[in-house]
């Protein structure tokens, strides 16, 4: 048996750029070549239609209509409790909705992680509410949960769970908005978590099982730690959906009090008061708060296990 000669060391792999080489060669060594022109249209579009408007809105927010104080709009927002409270209202609606969506999805997705009969059917059914969207869901909810004649309350009356003078009120209040967010957000969270779960190598679970770990222990010590980063991402994405609740808060909520969310405040400043400066201020505050919540969650995710999940994840 012969010993293979040691492979020659890869020569001059990381040599410094040759000062005599042509500029385009030196740039290409850093990864800059003509391929990057392909990025240009996309970047131009987004700078013109996303970055520039945000910067324009930021500038506008320091030019209040009714005052010379550049910070007037911000002071006004944080001192007027009608405005300031919209932050709390938005978080009170969106955080529980996002949490429920994620927490309810985990056991169901865990049960369906392997191959099973009817999986494709169930996932197809779950895509329907995502495509229907919040406006249509709101329209259906107004009929279905109607306190006098909606099918939901009629069923409760027929089963003698409730009497007609005490119907369950699930529209035009806080619960209407949360339910609408669960209807559109739960399928989304479920499908995401299902795809994260199918990325975890099932042989890890099988190995733990062979070593005698109980199902509960296998879930909490094997699957859950591998799933946790995915849960953080899922939470963020459902939270983004729930945070911009404008249509449902308006249609199935109580947009003057309990579901006066921050997007309604921004929209009213724009269309009712026609105060673009104030509207931009509120819109920017909204974006900053949402990004803050997301960065807190993603910071927490950075502290979790981030290695391989063993599967195709």
């Amino acid at each position: 048996m012969t010993v293979a000669p040691p492979a020659p060391a890869p020569a001059r792999r990381h040599r410094p750029p040759d000062p005599r080489a042509h500029l385009s060669h030196r740039l290409a060594e850093r990864g800059i070549d003509r391929t990057l022109w392909l990025l240009l249209p996309g970047v131009v579009f987004l700078v013109a239609l996303f970055i520039y408007p945000l910067a324009y809105g930021l500038g506008l927010s320091f030019q209040p209509l009714k005052s010379t104080d550049p910070l007037y709009n911000y002071k006004q927002f944080f001192t007027d409790h009608l405005q300031r409270d919209t932050i709390g209202t938005t978080l009170r609606i969106s955080l529980p909705a996002a949490l429920v969506n994620v927490i309810a999805s985990v056991p169901i997705a865990y049960r369906m992680r392997g191959r099973m009969r009817g999986k494709r059917f169930i996932t197809t059914m779950l895509v329907i509410p995502i495509t229907l969207g919040t406006v249509l869901t709101a329209d259906g909810m107004l009929k279905f949960f109607d306190p006098a004649g909606g099918w939901f309350n009629k069923t409760l009356f027929a089963l003698h769970i409730r009497t007609p003078d005490q119907p369950v009120l699930l529209i035009n209040n806080y619960w209407g908005v949360v339910i609408s967010l669960i209807i559109s957000g739960f399928p989304f969270a479920f499908l995401l978590i299902l795809s994260y779960l199918s990325g975890i190598d099932p042989s890890l679970d099988a190995a733990a099982s062979t070593l005698g770990a109980s199902p509960r222990r296998r879930f909490w010590q094997i699957t859950f730690p591998l799933l946790a980063p995915g849960l953080a991402i899922t939470f963020c994405l459902t939270f983004v959906l729930a945070f911009s609740v404008f249509p449902s808060a308006y249609l199935v909520g109580n947009p003057t009090s309990t579901t006066r969310v921050i997007s309604i405040a921004a929209y009213e400043a724009r269309s009712v008061e026609t105060n673009d400066s104030k509207a931009s201020t509120i819109a920017l505050i909204m974006a900053v708060i949402e990004l803050l919540v997301i960065s807190v969650v993603l910071f927490g995710r950075g502290r979790l296990y981030r290695g391989s999940t063993g599967g195709k994840g």
Binding site: G31, I32, L36, V240, S244, A279, I282, A283, A287, L291
Partner: peptide, 30 residues
């Protein structure tokens, strides 16, 4: 390709998905 400022470019493409539409829609419409 890997190139300088790739992360910044990725961020430009990621932000519109993360920020709620109303929040950038109002300045955009204005």
């Amino acid at each position: 390709r890997n190139f300088p400022f790739k992360h910044a470019i990725m961020l430009v493409f990621l932000l519109p998905v993360m920020v709620p539409p109303i929040a950038y829609g109002i300045p955009l419409a204005t």
